[in-house]
Design a protein around this nucleic acid. Structure first.
Length: 768
DNA sequence: CCGATACGCATTTTT
DNA sequence: TGCGTATCGG
């Protein structure tokens, strides 16, 4: 096979591609050609006679998988590319789980509960248990369950974990473990798995059935993982299950771009990879091909302020480029207008396309003001992210019917559409049925379809209504055996009258109708595509599996190809690049976001987020902040973000920024206890060692005056040390008295005399 | 059982 | 401000 593609790689990229003897870790800095390395490596493996079907490549998003497939297709041809096991963890493992469902006591056509489904189920459970929904806030409970699952703490483990139970008691959610049990049981009865289950159950499948594991170990001769910094504990465990025997594992990632810990991603995974496998070869891709030197250096100076990172020196050989322009605006509106003016200016001076610009923000809510301003100047723009197509109510409703046909036990699907369109089965009736199903530990469908087996005491007329619903669904189920998914979909929409629910001619209603039409088109496309691929048996369940794991990022709307300014959150911008990038809203409490200021750990993630934002820019990078901003309808004043100080001023055009930013008062922000599964559960299983190339960056040693000493450090102050106080200047510690938070120090200042400072509050840094 | 109105509460996002 | 839930009255 032709391996010319190797010539397009630089030295370090080539080394990473060619090494296939054992496990390897590729630390790929922003813009360093990570995808190129992955695709070339796979192409290279194919040239070494690895069969496509023996290579497993796991990605973070469907989009990444698709793009990589295309690129490999271009190198080695489409047909081998298609036979690769390439996809997200979830989609690949879903395939494996469907094939082996029976072993886990599931039907192969089990349902996948999305986040809304699990929320809704949890809401029911909390209600059924008569718990206070303030203390037992659904999202919080859901996160905790997800967290537990991601750490492979199953309900029975949870019960036995004194530490966790104690934590719950303290946090006023002592019934959590019961909720967890109930949740799992209900999912089981409904024949459903949530997203986390796709991982947990794969792990369990392999653990409980060594023969099955052995089979897949045999199949997957080489395993590659992209975006390894975004994997969580259970994903790592599965990788160990599959990869340990052969050690033919290559993971690629950048710890500096880990921005998904709120979803369970564990930065330790990449930091501990070297000890997880034998004789791991580490490759670093440090040349950035994307950005100007100034942008790369600015980003480096920023990320350096993080403690936890793998040391690397990213460099660029491109132009020095211009400094990053920082703009101060009076208000969010003025900020938007500054952005627009800069776009117009660059359009003229550099003849740029609208598509050369991206406006990145921390929260979706910030997009509105920007939109208005862009519209004022008739600048075309596109907003990415937000509500996904498949999240829309009208789509979910139809999907719920589909789901029910495939798996009538699906409780969430039933709840969603049993009375939609309204057919006289309201909450009261539903609650009765539900309580029977819970009492007898059977699904709602079981009660519905055989009410005579349960002493329901429902009125006869109600029973008739219920029977009609059951008939309707059973009719669809019968049809599903001999009708293709597309015509079945059409039938469902017609017979249920879903389209006719909305009678008024409002814009929203028409949009809804259009969406439904779009769904049918998608369904039709799906069938046609699969048929072209030679797939004869097109089950509705195939389609459902497909879309359950799809997101908005995957539904490319190719409707218009007009050049547009891109607007998106920084999270969604990961992996993308633009000639010009605006990062807006650099204000305290917004970015870093107030929700993420509870711990140094979270703060570092916010800083990585800022790093990701800056490194999206190829040539121009603009930062801005507003002194006031509308927040929930109220005008609020804002301080410039502390992160602005983290960038070395020499890379900025607006050096006065340093004086503008007051030292962030960390004392007043006592970190709230983080509600989290303690990492202890994990330490038991894995032994996290500090990787050899792990280089802690010591904030205190930095001479930059803007770095505050942390409370903990200040409380350790000892007699004889030298400090520099914000107002009093340099002084020596004469004595320290008091305990912990109440520690006081008497300081002899050179110019300000003797002062007694309460260490918790004093503004100073230790200088000697 | 259903629609209407009041209330309360706000990240980031992929699977 | 704007959405989603909770409660009330028909």
């Amino acid at each position: 096979m032709n391996t010319d593609f190797l010539n397009e790689l630089n030295d370090s990229q080539k080394k990473a591609v060619l090494y296939n003897e054992g496990a390897s870790l590729v630390i790929a800095g922003a813009g360093s050609g990570k995808t190129r390395v992955l695709t070339c490596k796979i192409a290279y493996l194919l040239s070494l006679d690895y069969k496509p079907s023996s290579i497993l490549a796991l990605t973070f998003t469907n989009k990444a998988a698709r793009e990589m497939k295309e690129r490999i297709g271009r190198l080695v041809g489409d047909s081998p590319a298609r036979r690769l096991w390439m996809g997200t963890f979830h989609s690949i493992f879903l395939r494996i789980l469907r094939a082996n469902a029976k072993l886990l006591d599931y039907e192969p056509q089990f349902t996948i509960y999305d986040t809304d489904d699990s929320k809704s189920l949890l809401r029911s459970i909390i209600k059924e248990m008569n718990l206070n929904d303030k203390e037992y806030a659904v999202t919080r409970i859901q996160n905790r369950i997800s967290n537990a699952k991601n750490h492979l703490i199953l309900p029975s483990d949870y019960d036995n974990d004194i530490e966790l139970i104690k934590q719950d008691n303290k946090n006023g959610i002592s019934m959590f473990h019961t909720i967890y049990h109930t949740y799992i049981n209900r999912c089981k009865t409904a024949g459903a798995m949530d997203f986390d289950d796709l991982l947990v159950n794969t792990y369990l499948l392999f653990k409980l059935h060594p023969d099955i594991l052995a089979m897949y170990v045999d199949i997957f001769r080489y395993i590659l993982v992209d975006e390894y910094q975004d994997t969580n504990f259970v994903q790592r465990e599965i990788l160990l299950q599959l990869g340990k025997p052969k050690q033919h594992v290559c993971v690629v990632g950048d710890d500096a771009q880990s921005i998904y810990s709120f979803r369970g991603a564990n930065i330790e995974n990449i930091l501990s990879f070297e000890t997880d496998f034998n004789n791991v070869k580490v490759f670093k891709l440090e040349q950035n091909y994307r950005s100007t030197q100034n942008i790369v250096l600015a980003a480096n100076s920023l990320i350096e302020k993080n403690q936890r990172q793998i040391h690397k020196s990213i460099f660029s050989k491109k132009d020095i480029g211009e400094q990053i322009l920082v703009s101060k605006a009076q208000s969010d509106i003025e900020e938007a207008s500054i952005v627009v003016k800069n776009i117009l200016k660059l359009r003229r001076s550099e003849d740029s396309e609208y598509s050369d610009f991206a406006i990145l923000y921390r929260t979706n809510a910030q997009s509105r003001v920007l939109e208005e301003e862009l519209r004022k100047y008739a600048i075309p723009y596109g907003i990415y992210g937000g509500v996904s197509f498949y999240q829309r109510k009208e789509i979910k409703d139809i999907i719920a019917y589909f789901r029910l046909i495939i798996n009538p036990n699906d409780e969430e699907a039933i709840k969603r559409i049993i009375n939609y369109p309204t057919r006289g089965i309201g909450d009261t009736t539903m609650n009765k049925i539900k309580s029977f199903s819970i009492q007898n530990n059977v699904s709602i469908w079981t009660v519905l379809s055989q009410p005579e087996n349960f002493n329901t005491g429902l009125q006869n007329s109600k029973l008739v209504t219920l029977h009609q619903f059951v008939d309707l669904i059973q009719g669809f189920i019968a049809d599903s055996l001999n009708k293709d998914a597309y015509s079945l979909g059409k039938d469902i929409i017609q017979q249920t009258g879903l389209l006719h629910i909305t009678t008024n001619d409002s814009i929203e209603d028409n949009e809804r109708k259009e969406n439904i039409g779009e769904l049918l088109t998608a369904l039709n496309d799906f069938i046609t595509n699969r048929q072209e691929e030679g797939n004869e048996h097109l089950l509705l369940s195939d389609y459902l599996s497909d879309i359950a794991l799809l997101t908005d990022q995957d539904t490319d709307k190719k409707d218009d190809i007009q050049s547009k300014v891109t607007m998106m959150t920084i999270h969604s911008a990961k992996g993308l690049e633009f000639p010009t990038v605006f990062v807006v809203g650099l204000e305290e409490n917004l970015f870093p976001n107030y929700m993420s200021m509870n711990s140094e750990r979270e703060l570092e993630e916010e800083r990585r987020l800022f790093y990701v934002a800056i490194t999206r820019a190829e040539r121009h990078c603009f930062l801005s902040f507003a002194e006031s901003r509308y927040h929930f309808g109220k005008m609020e004043f804002a301080q410039p973000s502390r992160f602005l100080k983290d960038i070395d001023v020499k890379y900025l055009r607006y050096p006065e920024i340093q004086n503008l930013i007051h030292d962030v008062d960390r004392r007043s922000k006592q970190y709230r206890p983080v509600f989290d599964i303690p990492s202890r559960g994990q330490d038991k299983k894995i032994h996290i060692e500090t990787p050899t190339n792990y280089k802690p960056v010591n904030n205190v040693e930095k001479t930059m005056a803007n770095i505050d000493t942390t409370i903990a450090e200040r409380l350790k102050l000892k007699e004889g040390q030298l400090i520099e106080h914000e107002r009093f200047g340099v002084g020596e510690v004469i004595r320290v008295e008091g305990e912990d938070e109440n520690k006081k120090a008497t300081i002899q200042f050179r110019n300000s005399g003797e002062k007694v400072l309460l260490l918790r509050f004093a503004r100073f840094k230790i200088i000697g």
